Simulated scan of single mutants.
Amino acid sequence: MASFPDDILTEIFLRLSIRASGRSRCVCKSWKSFLTKPPFIKVYLERSIKLHKFDLFKYDLDNFSIVHICYSHENQLLDLNISFIEDDEKFKLVGSHNGIVCLSTFDCKNPHRSKIFLWNPSTSENIALPQPIFHVSNLVGFGFNPISGHLDDFIVVNLNIYFEQRPNYTSLVDMYSFRRNCWKQLGNIFPPSLIQHSGNQVIFKNFICWCSCFHLDHGTVTSLILFDVVNDVFREIALLDMMPLEEKHISSLDGWLSLITHNSSTRQCEVWIMKEFGARESWTKLYSFELFTGSIVRYWPVGFVYYREVFFVKSTQVRSLFESPNYLVLYSLQNDKFEALEVEVDSYCITRLVTCVESLISPSSTISVER
């Protein structure tokens, strides 16, 4: 096969699974060289984005953090090995891009024990990032620079907040570049609205996106918070007044930045998309559906999977609080029905879902792939 043209070898190796590709590197030096070259890594990633997407579902149960992998066409949750994180460490699933996943641990009693990991679940490779200038915080963002020309130009933002006397605070923000393998201090640039509630994040273009929700005397205020990983600045965009006031879940749907929210006045779930990224007035309600069927039951959105199916955490209200047990359910917009997955979770607040792809990008070394 060493005499085959590169385009023929590419077509052959593209048809291998990620595990078979890894084993093939051990056959001979020429295969290893070909399979680790940037052009093949790029082509493999492009194919995976079209054909080999999957979802990672993270939740806590009995105070232990667990990650499952979900192939959407099967609707089954399979365990993943995360032995690189100590058994007693709880962690957050921060985000994913180009097959690389960011995880963070946080020890409130000893913050300097906290760590940030980059992990390729397809190849099982992982690394712990060097400690930031300040200790790892409870709020970490994961992004990607799409204009640099490199498929592994990953960015991690570490956000430490120190309250002097509420509402006064000081923020210490530092940013890690995977390609430079170093942290850079950005200073006190943190928007105060993000302190109240950040929830999950979405990577969209060169922005890390959160939907912040906070409560003032005159009512609930929500806004979109964006961190530009190219220019190292935060940006805040107010949401439309016509949107429901309840807390919103930020996600991605069919290439659009989207929000899932509960409208208590109509007892419906609404899905909104931002048709022109960054333009407040471009928010459009895509559809709504009745979901909250009882006064003691609440469905909390976790995110979209496959073709407009939504993971929810189902909670039951006891007295005035929503308490355990909480269960994961899958709602099909097409069939207007629930599928119970018999997965119990501690809380919807720390339940996360991210979409990932099979990738040969290594978290242990940088590559130089031009787009």
Rank of each mutant, 00 (worst) to 15 (best):
C356M: 02
M1V: 08
N206H: 15
S33D: 08
L194I: 07
S359D: 08
N126V: 11
V229K: 03
Q165A: 07
S122V: 08
V156G: 04
S265P: 02
R308H: 11
L118H: 11
N145T: 12
F13D: 08
I203T: 11
S223C: 15
F13P: 12
W272A: 08
F91T: 04
I367E: 02
L216A: 00
P111D: 05
I82P: 13
F142M: 07
V27I: 06
M1P: 14
F204S: 06
K32I: 06
N326G: 02
I8M: 15
Y327T: 13
F84H: 08
G303N: 06
S368K: 06
H68L: 01
D7C: 14
T261L: 14
L35K: 03
H97I: 02
T36L: 09
R298G: 13
R15H: 08
V43H: 01
R23F: 09
I147C: 05
S198M: 03
S124Y: 07
M274E: 09
L16P: 02
K50Y: 06
F207K: 04
L139N: 11
S171T: 01
V230K: 11
I82K: 11
I367D: 01
V305N: 13
L333G: 14
K115Y: 00
T316P: 11
L129I: 07
D346E: 07
R280Q: 15
M1I: 10
T36K: 05
I100M: 10
V369A: 12
Q268L: 15
